[in-house]
Design a protein around this nucleic acid. Structure first.
Lengths: 328, 328
DNA sequence: ATCCATCGTTGCGTCCGGTGCAACGCTTGC
DNA sequence: GCAAGCGTTGCACCGGACGCAACGATGGAT
């Protein structure tokens, strides 16, 4: 009924629509309405035709076709000129209203084209939040007040998943595992550091910290879905060390409080603790590990995705004006 | 180039509009928007094309042309299907809004077609007011609550002038002089009567009144622009009688008060004093005059004018349900 | 990792609809 | 009564939209 008869069914459907939709709705096209509008304004078919740059016969036929399709008279043919009937005036009002509305839509499209208006969704790791919010993101938002932004904060693989299903357009993340489906637009190496409170025993060592050193202290770690945790696992494997964290959390903020107030040790990038280091509430010690050295912060999108103009502009803006993403 | 100035001028105008109007506004035609809407709903070009009963290639081209004209991406080509971009969603919203609005307009057009809605303007002589308001006009208005009526009360030649310049669609009038530009849809002879208060000397005569009889009494007359007055002038001329009215007024109502309370004499049709005769405040006496016998009440329109459906229906209704217009 | 089903797109021949020109009927003003 | 407008119609023509077939590309299935 539905597959073997598609041809017939299509014909019937088309025939039905010819009389239902096309007969009433599609009969009202932009051209006919414009013609009617000009006739209403000019007061004559010929005058309106001259305004439109077409012949009077063409315009006459346009209106005649609309009348035929709608089954109602739109013009009072008046020997000397023509006036719109009540129905014609109704359609003319409709046209003018839609035209004004359309102007607004076109203006909004223009805004979208020039990235003055739009919806941008980006994701970021928790560690970038402070830098993004006070710096480039804030500047961009101030420069584009009509731009709506949605900021999704999550772990690396959460962000990757959101990138892949297009629920975010771009993401700033740390320690991204290689993925051909993603495209990097800016990257900078940020070695992982050992973060402790000032005066901590590791701080007093005065040298680079090895993974072995960490075994004697209380560790705090992100849960497994974060790129930081993944890289650390690789380092443990490479150096044959197994680290047992005292505190696991999906919140980097919680871990920093753990280091600051509980005297714990946290491994993360320096930029992620920039405010605390500035206020001298924490210190970031260098680590003695090749693997931890290679960690990168990246600005990525899904490869092959066509971004909106606003998103493209934000992408360029972030790549250019985010110090922690600029290659040194 | 091809036709001296006109051809070139048209080309330039067309070229200008190609970039101004057509480039932004006319690019958004009903067909393209419908296609975009279906793609947005179906999630794929092919599915939308199947719904529309056209080929996928045609639909693809429609959207591509809109994107070209607007200079902005409307679809996210997604390998597996297609989704609308923000700009596409904006246009789709616009389309759905206009479609809903259009449904309303079409419904209103339907109402106009079926005379459920509309604007009717009619004129009438003062003498018909009582009959029309209580009878056929009231019934018609109750049967069509959405119909707006404009009732113009005036003298015969005022109404004729309004008919000829189309400011009223039809008129009920008395003693219409023959006019080829007007068309009568219903007519009934209503001889003019001599109207006096009960007990008036003319009443006590107990016979038909001649124009000579009138010379001995105080007459009230309408001013010259009324058909009644014109006919009476003809009768005076035919019977070699000159009547000198005591009161002239353009208000028939004033003349009736003149007859009722001042003991005056007024010449008019019987229907024009129907309520007063019913209440026995006036009597209508027959006149002895061939000319006054031929007076007619008529329902007329301008010949050649195409009336609105509502007006046509009112015309038929008045012709059928107005006793003073039905040929006995 | 490979295959293939499906998607969107493009080249090309075809056809329909809109258009312009000229002529006609009609109304209006001189 | 005549001429100048108006709106409309017959006819030939042209351009744009369409369908068909084939082509890259993507994503899931094996």
């Amino acid at each position: 009924m539905d597959e073997c008869m598609t041809g017939t069914r299509r014909s019937l459907l088309s025939e039905k629509k010819r009389q239902q939709l096309a007969g009433r709705l599609a009969a009202i096209d932009h051209r006919g309405l414009l013609g009617l509008h000009e006739v209403a304004g000019a007061g004559s078919v010929r005058g309106a035709a001259e305004r439109l740059g077409i012949s009077a016969s063409a315009l006459s036929r346009q209106v005649a076709r609309m009348e035929e399709d709608l089954g109602i008279m739109l013009l009072e043919r008046h020997g000397r000129g023509a006036r719109v009937t009540e129905a014609g005036a109704l359609l003319n009002d409709y046209f003018e209203e839609q035209r004004a509305r359309l102007d607004g839509v076109v203006a909004q499209l223009q805004d979208i084209t020039e990235a003055r208006r739009g919806q941008i969704s980006l994701g970021t790791g928790e560690g970038f939040l402070w830098h993004l919010m006070r710096g480039p993101l804030r500047g961009f938002a101030q420069a584009h007040p009509q731009l709506h932004m949605e900021l999704s904060v999550g772990s690396t693989d959460q962000l990757v998943a959101q990138l892949l299903d297009d629920s975010i357009q771009m993401a700033v993340l740390y320690n991204l595992p290689p993925d051909p489906r993603l495209q990097s637009h800016a990257a900078r190496r940020h070695p992982m550091r050992i973060v402790v409170a000032p005066g901590h025993p590791l701080h007093r060592l005065g040298r680079k910290i090895t993974l072995q050193d960490l075994r004697q202290h209380r560790l705090g770690m992100l849960t497994g879905s974060h790129g930081v945790r993944q890289l650390l696992l690789s380092a443990e494997h490479g150096e044959r060390v197994r680290l047992e964290p005292q505190l696991r959390s999906n919140s980097a903020r919680a871990l920093l409080r753990f280091a600051e107030e509980w005297g714990g040790v946290v491994i993360t990038a320096a930029f992620a603790v920039a405010p605390e280091v500035l206020e001298k509430r924490l210190v970031a010690l260098e680590a003695e590990s090749g693997i931890l050295e290679g960690a990168e912060a990246q600005l990525v999108t899904r490869r092959g995705r066509r971004l909106s103009p606003a998103a493209q502009q934000l992408l360029r803006h972030l790549a250019a004006h985010t110090p922690i993403l600029r290659a040194s």
